[in-house]
Design a protein around this nucleic acid. Structure first.
Lengths: 264, 264
DNA sequence: TAGTGGTCTAGACCACTTC
DNA sequence: AAGTGGTCTAGACCACTAA
């Protein structure tokens, strides 16, 4: 038999999904359910904690426990990197996403800091540098309105970006066209990419920064960007609240028996 | 100040990462820590539950709480679909993965059932069918040794697979070359794919089936497979234990200003 | 100040595994 | 039977929010 707290949680989850409690609605208070005989305070609290871990509600002291607004998944496809967007106009990828999904763009929804740091292991490997070599890190926290959705940190080799707008201390996105445009202007036109995704438990710093609810996971995205001759010009690491995104990739079925390797 | 259970959990997590408790080692018993003054049983239990949610340990009644073996992430790239593997030899994708990573292959590591079912919404949409239309579902549970790692269910239109080995009740993988080979023999050569990934909380059925520890998430993968003329011949939905996989995609930076749409 | 959720305790009892 | 983690209770007290 399922524990009492699990049964209560399931019953409430069912009511939420049925719409008895709509987004923003307040769930009964813990003490009320205790009075109604749902169990002791710890038991009811365990049920509420489970609902929070499942992403259905958020609890906060003083306020109460309310049903979360389930923002539809934001779908990220490779079209967000379209050269036409950042080379021929002044859009940058994250703005293009916003435009495509009909959301308003505000300049302050992205903050960034640029600094020279020792390369973390994954970055060093992607760039073919010894671990700890100096690289420029451009860290952004991307928000949608007031809600942070993901962090994105791009790592560049100093010789590629020194003297460009990327290392310029001016605030806001890296200027007209974003980071890819800056690299393009510096003679490094990006050509192909590799993205790797995996899910993991957030660090406590990430829970704060991305305002994650208890038990919510993150998806880490590693993007390596190459020029046509195979030079790595950027390695970016993004940390996304797992509930808010979906990633889509289109590709041809490979055929190694034909033409050996496909020209990249 | 962090709660007492959080501090205890962090301290133990630190010791696990340092190697004080190696994989398979047993953590102190709850009652022992209570005696040592780490708090009441509930408090220590909360700490252990947190460690379990973070994927560091597994607890079970009767046994105790032991440090999990952290299997390295299995990396899935699009090379697993290489035509040379399933068309020209008798490998199937999941075996190819195994071979590539040097693991032994055993025939019984995949079980499957085939049935005619009403199409779920996502499947119907991908196939361009009305919701609830009849489709063949080929459901597999893939294991590595005794450990299940993911489920994968392929949905086919009846007119594409009727009379083929796919709907044959014979057990095991869909015969020589797998499902793609069967489609190829039936005149449907697969050409390109679209994959979509997102993370979510598992259902209770998935927790049992995939032997997930408490709080562990899953990644759902949707794969739509097309022939060269754009016909959808398969829509597959996979549910993966989130901690055990990473996905990698290589692609060219799109350029919509050149040549309109790229020929698929 | 009143009302919310969060933490903690001490102890009873249950479920499962091993001997 | 003994030993493990898991559930549950009743109640005290704490942290935060709003009026």
């Amino acid at each position: 038999m399922a524990p009492k707290w699990r049964e209560l949680a399931d019953r409430l989850a069912e009511q939420i999904r049925r719409g008895d409690y709509g987004p923003g609605a307040q769930l009964p208070q813990i003490r009320d359910l205790v009075e109604q005989g749902e169990g002791s305070k710890s038991t009811v609290h365990a049920a509420y904690k489970a609902l929070e871990a499942e992403g259905l509600v958020t609890s906060s002291r003083g306020h109460g426990t309310v049903v979360r607004h389930q923002a539809p998944l934001k779908r990220l496809g490779i079209a967000r990197y379209d050269k036409a967007k950042w080379r021929d106009s002044d859009e940058v990828a994250f703005i293009a996403d916003r435009v495509a999904s009909g959301r308003a763009y505000k300049r302050d929804e992205q903050t960034q800091t640029v600094s020279l740091v020792p390369a973390p292991a994954a970055v060093a490997e992607a760039h073919g540098l010894p671990e700890g070599a100096s690289v420029y890190a451009r860290a952004r926290l991307v928000k949608e309105g007031t809600q942070p959705t993901h962090t994105l940190t791009s790592y560049y080799r100093p010789e590629h970006v020194e003297g460009t707008r990327i290392v310029d201390p001016a605030p806001g996105p890296a200027g007209r066209g974003g980071g890819f445009r800056v690299l393009y202007d510096a003679g490094y036109e990006i050509d192909h990419m590799q993205e790797t995704l995996f899910a993991r438990v957030p660090t406590s710093a990430e829970i704060q920064l991305l305002q994650l609810s208890a038990g919510e996971w993150v998806v880490e995205l590693h993007r390596t960007t190459f020029t046509a001759d195979g030079t790595v010009v950027e390695h970016a690491i993004g940390v996304h609240a797992a509930t808010r995104f979906a990633w889509t990739y289109d590709f041809d079925v490979p055929d190694s028996s034909k033409s050996g390797d496909k020209p990249k």
